[in-house]
């Protein structure tokens, strides 16, 4: 399930560079969606819990290349890499000082989200079967789970768009009143050449 949450965030991130000019309707967003070849950005993940005096900070990088290659990598505090390429998914995590491939991952959730990505890349935000999307002013998109089962895991996902058209400030995943996760993105670069090996090697 964690992969689902993470990949929702990733997928949400991927859709944002498509939004140029921040139109104020879904139809306008769809019409203004440009062709995207690649995205690369640094991220800071803040984990907020009521019992924590300050959030847990994780740092990493994400790299996407159309049509469906992805590298989602944490540098700290726990080294962790998710790779998706040619329909295959691998996850590596640091154990005993080494990066080891995690066996037995449940990929069903990932496949669902990857299907969603293709819709979002076309500017279709409202066709997600798991979440209903709402556009709040020109810079914020709210995703609300449609099913109670999903709502028990995630109350809401909030996408905050940047002042700069085509970029994103943050994605916040609300799990409940005591817990939320915020991903803040910086140094985003669009449509640069990316070596395929980044999606295959840890």
């Amino acid at each position: 399930m964690s992969a689902y949450v993470k990949n929702i965030a990733i997928a949400l991130l991927l859709l944002v560079p498509l939004l140029t000019g921040w139109a104020d309707s879904w139809e306008a967003l769809k019409q203004q969606t440009p062709v995207i070849k690649s995205v690369r950005a640094d991220f800071v993940q803040e984990k907020h819990l009521k019992i924590l005096s300050r959030p847990i900070i994780s740092r990493g990088v994400f790299i996407f290349q159309a049509p469906g290659s992805l590298r989602w990598e944490y540098f700290s505090p726990i080294k962790n890499i998710l790779l998706i390429h040619n329909g295959r998914t691998k996850k590596f995590i640091r154990r005993d000082g080494r990066l080891e491939e995690e066996q037995g991952m449940s990929l069903a959730a990932l496949q669902i989200v990857l299907q969603e990505i293709s819709r979002w890349l076309s500017g279709n935000f409202t066709e997600n079967s798991a979440f209903s999307a709402g556009l709040e002013n020109k810079r914020r998109i709210i995703f609300i789970p449609r099913e109670p089962a999903m709502a028990r895991l995630i109350n809401k996902i909030e996408l905050q768009l940047s002042d700069t058209p085509g970029l994103i400030d943050s994605v916040t995943i609300y799990e409940g009143p005591d817990s939320y996760t915020r991903l803040i993105f910086t140094n985003a670069r669009l449509n640069q050449e990316i070596d395929n090996s980044l999606f295959m090697k840890k």
Partner: peptide, 8 residues
């Protein structure tokens, strides 16, 4: 929680 932050 998971490394990605989901509280289990």
């Amino acid at each position: 929680m998971t490394v990605e932050g989901l509280v289990l």
